[in-house]
Nucleic acid binder design. Structure first.
Lengths: 249, 249
DNA sequence: TTGCGCTGGTGTAAAATACACACTAATTTC
DNA sequence: GAAATTAGTGTGTATTTTACACCAGCGCAA
């Protein structure tokens, strides 16, 4: 095994945007930095990639140390490698996002985890390094992915109501959806299993509970089925047009 | 400036899938390796990222050394970091693809370029390292990107006929498109400038020449216009269904 | 100069889909 | 048992997508 000249080497890390969904809000798990640089500021959880560790493995490790969760949805998004993105030297980072059920999440004993906290995506302003940019990029990617793959369920408990699912989509897509159309669309895909159970302990008509039928999805997928759940461009276009017209009087 | 422990460092490269379009085929520029490992095999052009060089800059450098072209469409796709992807040590690589007009391409004097050659995507089988996987990933990404952004024009000469454009899309999407519908759709976007010129030197009725109107696109984009040029999923689904039915008789 | 070969160019009708929209049903709480 | 709250449901219309076939214009060769 030949060693490459040190000249060509650089430090590299993974950073993980861990999304959760709670109280109707899309949230991200951030860590308060306890050391320079950016001491005291919030940052994305991340760490160096070990020399004998695959990239995805590193991202999973960061995730597990922090949340105790394994087998979580994880998607590589983009690599950020601006020369000056780290004040102490050249550090290239591979950004991932992952989707966790906050209900499954347990604070881990690892010292790093004690400084972790969920933040609503909408309220995050400043972050250490270029992490604000990374977060935005990952959020965009999530917005996109969720419309083409049935990954939204990763953020909900195993059983959920259609209204919860709709609220999840509304939070991610930052838009409002029509209830009847949403239900029609999602049910017509045949990927939701009606559990013949209803909500308990709510002060109103209880909703039916559903489960995502992953096996069925995999079967459908093999037959060329495409999941698609998105706001039509027609509506979007009209909204934009309206806004422009209002802006110009 | 603190140095990170060498333990966390590793070699870092960019690999570039350079797409071109010629004779109705989508092609990729490959290099015949002149050294170990994989000596004599075809590989994607790539090189180490210099310590003081942004990632995108490195990808552009590789591209320019090889083709002499600047200001070319370039898109970061994915980072490949399996521990054993390079037999001589840990090398993480960021994959890009770029789109060049083969007509602009001139063989460069750089020694590396002398071993370069265009290969039709469809006919590439084995490549050095994990480059076959990288190529496939980039090809998928191109397929996707081309439907949502007007980047196909980057592969054509500045002036082109609608038939050429259609053939380009057919080559990338690996499908056939309906002539009338294609023309209707692309013209209705209003992004093509009719040059009031016609083909010369063809042994049949000459076609009108068009140019992509980038300025107009940018203006439209600011108003929320979305480029979209894709095979409908309905047709796809039907085709797949038909194929399945035939397969099962 | 005529006819053949080739590619360019065009419209319409039918089907599928996206959209907007409002009331009744079931449950808890007071 | 009335009030409050959320669940659940169907239809008509606008728009988009799809399928489909013929005539036009040019070069070339007979």
């Amino acid at each position: 095994m030949t060693e490459f000249d040190n000249f060509f080497k650089s430090a590299f890390t993974v950073d993980n945007v861990i999304f959760g969904f709670d109280e109707g809000d899309l949230k991200v798990l951030l860590i308060k930095r306890g050391e320079a640089p950016y001491m005291g500021q919030w940052a994305l959880p991340g760490y160096f990639v070990y020399p004998n560790e695959d990239l995805d493995a590193a991202a999973n490790r960061v995730l597990e140390e922090l949340t105790g969760l394994r087998n979580v949805y994880l998607e590589q998004v983009k690599t950020f490698g601006a020369v000056d993105r780290h004040p102490f030297g050249r550090v290239i980072t591979v950004a991932y996002f992952s989707l966790v059920k906050i209900s499954d999440y347990r604070l881990q004993p690892a010292s790093i985890a004690r400084k972790a906290q969920w933040h609503p995506v909408a309220q995050i302003s400043e972050l250490a390094f270029d992490h604000a940019e990374i977060l935005q990029t990952c959020f965009q990617r999530l917005k996109n992915s969720v419309q083409w793959r049935p990954i939204g369920f990763e953020l909900l408990p195993p059983q959920f109501t259609l209204t919860e699912l709709q609220h999840l989509y509304e939070a991610i897509l930052e838009t409002e959806l029509d209830k009847r159309n949403f239900r029609k669309k999602i049910l017509s895909m045949g990927l939701l299993l009606d559990l013949d159970q209803i909500q308990e302990g709510v002060a109103h008509r209880p909703a039916k509970l559903y489960r995502f039928d992953r096996e069925k999805y995999l079967r459908f997928q093999a037959e060329g089925f495409h999941f698609e759940l998105k706001e039509g461009k027609r509506k979007e276009a009209r909204q934009r047009k309206k806004m422009l017209e209002e802006a110009w009087g």
